[in-house]
Design a protein around this nucleic acid. Structure first.
Lengths: 267, 267
DNA sequence: GCTGTTTCTGCATGATTGTGCCTATAAAAA
DNA sequence: TTTTTATAGGCACAATCATGCAGAAACAGC
């Protein structure tokens, strides 16, 4: 067996009789677990069978749940299990409602900038599978969800990682964001009121959000009702920078009236 | 193996009297345990009986649980047992051993660059709580672990996220890494051998690892023994760029001797 | 010895499986 | 976008298989 790892070319050279199906699948499994990834093309050369056969093997192994089949080869199963459990998210039901509304704002081909926070993560989970778009974020939790989506391109903003908020913060991240021009930006909102606009408590997070707002053609704030008409010490922006406010409430709710009057679209 | 293709001719030539049934079956068992697999066709030639008879023998032995019958022949019982355990991380025990050894190389205040992969994640989990250092990585899984550590500063390299390998890849990431100068760099190794050095299968990952190696004062390769003396299509670097090789084996293991001779420190 | 029974084996048949090749479609890459 | 590459599904062919059957061999009892 080890020989196959060492001298795959020799197999061809000696024209060794082809492996039995089970044997071959075992070998494939070993390779995929060893290297985390295999290509149909190289396996085909190593084992000296057609790519069709390899593809059929990968198909079977995939159906048995022993590996994950992807275009061009397969990935190890144990490798792709970095999931954050979604237990005990505060006000989850409201956040799902908000996420549902917000998703309607995204269409194919869009370049989308998102912050962090549980509402954003909820939105990431609910993105329709057929959506094709590019998502940019500095939030680890959000990125994890985006990665599971089949059709979206994921760009991660790098810099120092803030352990509290699980997002990347710092001048590097801000200057990266400044270089972008997104179609739309989704911000989880910690506090919003008429006098102070959108406010937050963490200076570095505020800097980042400011940059995100400046870099986006359209700014969407996601806020559950209990955060409306509250404020925090540091201002992110005044209300006139906000294009759309998404809450779990009906857009006609009297609580939201002043925001509509301020020129914000409600959803 | 090849002998069995040759021998049967002699058997025919000498017109050896056919074996008794019991005798034949124990011969088959011996062969299957010796080679892990037998083909009905070659057994038929070797023993000089029809394939039907062999098939019936294999059938019986299979029912007695002494081997596993497959299309075209049979496999040894031990063969399939090797590949059943697929839960969790492959070779986790070995990886933990490697991680333990590798951690000894890190001291307070260091600036550490790490790749992705399960071995690196294992290492991240085992970092002592009192260690104070800065860790830089583009691997989402590794970053998640680093974030849980109380005393380390985490820097995330941003760029496009590769869904397969769960790391950030691309020119942006590479140019970020080039701007760094790390004290030490830990690389999970997919394949390493004497001729080709360290090799991998994914072009973009290779570019990234190359940059990491160039940006580090000391390069450490983490590799489980199975990956030693194997190679993949794309070269990351030749052996002389590697300072330290960490495996689960004893540094004195004869398998590692050539690497020590190549000037690599073993751990 | 003879005879009937059982076991083993080889052969013929048709069904099943494994594989490679082909083409239209779908997905990635340029 | 266009171009390249990978894939699914159908087809063809060969290898392998299950089954039934018949002859050969082994065996038992007489």
């Amino acid at each position: 067996m080890r020989f196959h790892a060492l001298f795959p070319l020799y197999l061809n050279f000696f024209n060794e009789p082809s492996m039995l199906k089970k044997e071959r699948q075992s070998y494939i499994l070993q390779q995929v677990n060893l290297h985390n990834k295999v290509l149909s093309s190289s396996l085909s050369l190593e084992i000296n069978v057609s790519e069709d056969t390899i593809r059929r093997d990968l198909q079977e192994l995939s159906e048995e749940g022993k590996l994950i089949k992807v275009h061009g080869g397969a990935l190890s199963r144990s490798f792709s299990q970095v999931h954050i459990p979604n237990n005990g998210v505060y006000s989850q039901h409201q956040k799902k409602t908000i996420a549902q509304k917000a998703i309607a704002l995204i269409s194919n081909g869009m370049f989308v900038l998102t912050g962090g926070g549980t509402t954003i993560v909820e939105m990431a989970r609910m993105l329709p599978a057929e959506l094709k778009a590019t998502f940019v974020s500095g939030s680890i939790a959000a990125i994890l969800e985006y990665m599971d989506h089949p059709n979206i391109e994921v760009i991660l903003i790098g810099d120092r990682v803030s352990k509290g908020s699980k997002i990347t913060i710092g001048s590097e991240a801000i200057s990266r964001i400044r270089q972008l021009k997104a179609d739309i930006c989704f911000l989880g909102t910690n506090a919003i009121d008429l006098q102070n606009g959108v406010t937050d408590i963490d200076w570095e997070v505020v800097q980042l959000k400011k940059a995100m707002i400046e870099s986006s053609a359209k700014v969407v704030c996601l806020a559950i009702a209990e955060k409306i008409n509250t404020y925090q010490p540091i201002q992110i922006c005044s209300l006139d920078k906000i294009d759309i406010l998404v809450t779990e409430l009906d857009p006609g709710d009297p609580m939201l009236k002043p925001y509509a009057d301020a020129g914000i679209e409600l959803l």
